[in-house]
Design a protein around this nucleic acid. Sequence first.
DNA 1: CGGTTGACCAAGT
DNA 2: GACTTGGCCAACC
Length: 106
Amino acid sequence: MKSSPTEFERRCYALLRQIPEGRVTTYKAIAEALGTKAYRAVGRAMGANPDPVIVPCHRVVASDGTLGGYALGLERKIALLESEGLRIGQGRVEDFKTVFWSAFSV
DNA sequence: CGGTTGACCAAGT
DNA sequence: GACTTGGCCAACC
């Protein structure tokens, strides 16, 4: 089973699950939504991602629209995003601002 | 409890 | 436009 994720990590995962299909968000947006500025802590938490299936971590990209990274490999991340109707251009998300999703937009 | 690391970000060179 | 530096927060050693 899973280790004991901290409240912070759980919060990140819960937020990711709120992301609609075909949309992406940034590490920064997540941190801000959680009421903090720990962009790095969010990224690190994703690295601790216990359930890459339950939690759509592949919908999280860097603030520049770059894919950033993925526990299962960027190739996998790209495939998933394209599968959701997103356009990926050379390690980067096209129409990033268009598909960008904010927790405050709900 | 101090120091290092990390799927980062923004600004400066 | 690409690389370097400083800064932020949380988890790990």
